[in-house]
């Protein structure tokens, strides 16, 4: 199988993944400590807000506030990781260090680079998702063994945001433009029913929130966290994957336009 997807690169893309792994090897402490970070957030909520807020209803279950928020934090961490891996770092290589230009002098193609970056983002996201879900089990923030499936949901989330991020990074002109990324990711974070249920939003706003990929992700993960399955989950998952595919197609086109005009 020489082509992973029809228009998206060849097996050579794996060298881009390899390159990024090599890069992180030189910063292994930073990489390793990333596995601990979810503990801080989960502990902070578990210790404090859990007592203040008490329990909430998810589907037909009552769950602790910590168990309500934890999947939302997992979704958020998948989104934030994607911003680092797919907006920040590629922007640096695309427009500041011009590392991609030197890669293009080798047999690798533009599509290989776009695909390689997306694959790397997924690899790293997968590792972090495993650790995050592990921490949730450890702190008792899950109420069902099915919570293990949240890893898959988190991967789909990372895919969606990484691909969209990769596309977005090609439009940035300077570091100043990262404010625009924050301007999008911040409201998503605060208003995607991560901290409190959708029912608390004004009705008009609730409709808007439903389009937020972070809301769809958080809701999907929350359902899995308490082991309650429903048909909507397929739709939510499909929404995330579809966003990812659109993002990847745009990213590949934009990369080609910038690197090989």
């Amino acid at each position: 199988m020489s082509r992973v997807l029809p228009v998206l690169g060849s097996r050579r893309a794996r060298h881009v993944v390899e390159r990024n792994a090599l890069f992180y090897r030189s910063q292994w402490l930073m990489f390793a400590s990333g596995f601990v970070e979810p503990l801080f957030y989960l502990l902070s909520i578990g210790i404090g807000l859990n007592h203040l807020v008490g329990s909430l209803t998810v589907g037909s279950h009552r769950v602790s506030y910590a168990a309500f928020v934890a999947p939302g934090m997992l979704a958020t961490s998948a989104m934030n990781g994607a911003v680092i891996d797919s907006v920040f770092n590629p922007f640096f290589r695309l427009k500041i260090s011009h590392a991609y230009d030197s890669i293009l002098a080798t047999p690798l193609d533009v599509d290989d680079i776009a695909l390689g970056e997306a694959l790397w983002a997924l690899t790293r996201a997968g590792l972090y998702a495993v650790s995050f879900v592990g921490c949730m089990f450890l702190l008792g923030d899950t109420s069902s063994p099915w919570a293990i499936l949240e890893i898959v949901g988190a991967l789909a989330t990372s895919f969606a945001f990484s691909a969209l991020g990769l596309a977005a990074c090609t439009y940035l002109r300077s570091w100043q433009d990262f404010d625009l990324i924050t301007l999008v990711s911040l409201p998503l974070f605060l208003f995607s029913a991560t901290f409190f249920p959708l029912s608390l939003y004004p009705r008009a706003l609730a409709t808007v929130v439903a389009f937020s990929p972070l809301y769809q992700s958080a809701t999907l993960l929350r359902g899995l966290n308490s082991g309650q399955f429903d048909g909507w989950m397929i739709l939510r998952l499909g929404y995330l994957v579809a966003l990812g595919l659109v993002g990847l197609a745009v990213a590949a086109r934009r990369f080609r336009r910038i690197l090989s005009p």
Partner: peptide, 10 residues
Amino acid sequence: GVGHLVAKHT
């Protein structure tokens, strides 16, 4: 948002 939940519970 969370304040609403806190008011109800605590």
